[in-house]
């Protein structure tokens, strides 16, 4: 079965709805109950069906063990279970970047990542960027250039920028715009954020 066919075979339920629905609403009752305690075949072999799972992840450098629901997003786990509320719930469906965190160093939308996917991995949130009370150069630059207004999208922008500058330490303006295009700022402060990113790049090179 090719990818496309498999998608349509899910009967109009998006993958996202499916993963959130399993164990949660009506779909969970319908699909999960008969399978509970069994194993189902997947591309990677047979995997057990579970409702909850204990996961261990390194969050901002600290090893953390949590019991999460199978369909729980990383965003909900961070916000509700670990009180790490820096990542924000803006759209809860991967449209805005307000919940961006680092998963093994790479930026991901925490609302589109299941908590179980973080098992055995490192998770970096905006709360972990400053070290020993000293702001990360990206954070410093956002303050200096006023790269924010209401501040709700800022944690997402700061995390995205920190990962981007690791990959591209001397970006052009076009590259900056491209890198930030997955993060929405409704106050519309992009033109100030460009300056903050450029200034952060200079700081990090000097560091």
């Amino acid at each position: 079965m090719d990818k496309k066919a498999r998608k349509s075979a899910s009967g109009g339920v998006s993958r996202r709805d499916f993963i959130k629905g399993v164990g949660g609403g009506a779909l969970g009752t319908a699909v999960l109950a008969p399978l509970r305690g069994q194993a189902i075949a997947t591309k990677k072999g047979r995997v057990p069906v579970y409702e909850r799972k204990t996961v261990t992840m390194t969050v901002n450098g600290k090893e953390t063990t949590l019991s999460v629901e199978a369909n729980e997003t990383l965003l909900d786990a961070l916000r509700d279970r670990l009180d790490l509320t820096g990542a924000k719930k803006v759209c809860d469906r991967g449209e805005c970047g307000g919940c961006t965190v680092l998963l093994d160093g790479a930026p991901v939308y925490a609302c589109m990542t299941l908590a179980v996917r973080a098992d055995g991995k490192s998770v970096g949130t905006v709360e972990g960027l400053a070290e020993g009370g000293k702001l990360h150069p990206v954070q410093e630059a956002f303050v200096e250039e006023d790269g924010y207004q209401c501040g709700f999208c800022t944690p997402g922008f700061v995390v995205t920028t920190s990962a981007f500058l690791e990959r591209n330490p001397a970006p052009s303006l076009d590259e900056i715009k491209q890198a930030l295009s997955g993060n929405l700022c409704r106050c519309g402060n992009y033109a100030k954020i460009y300056g903050a990113v450029a200034s952060a790049a200079k700081k990090m090179k000097g560091a």
């Binding site: 509320t85 820096g86 702001l135 954070q139 303050v143 200096e144 924010y148 501040g151 800022t154 944690p155």
Partner: peptide
């Protein structure tokens, strides 16, 4: 003048209604 609360905003510590528990 840089914002007096800039540090709260960029570190994720600023408490929004969504963050109240």
């Amino acid at each position: 003048t840089r914002r007096v609360d800039g540090r709260e905003i960029v570190t994720g510590r600023a408490r929004f209604t969504q963050d109240v528990k």
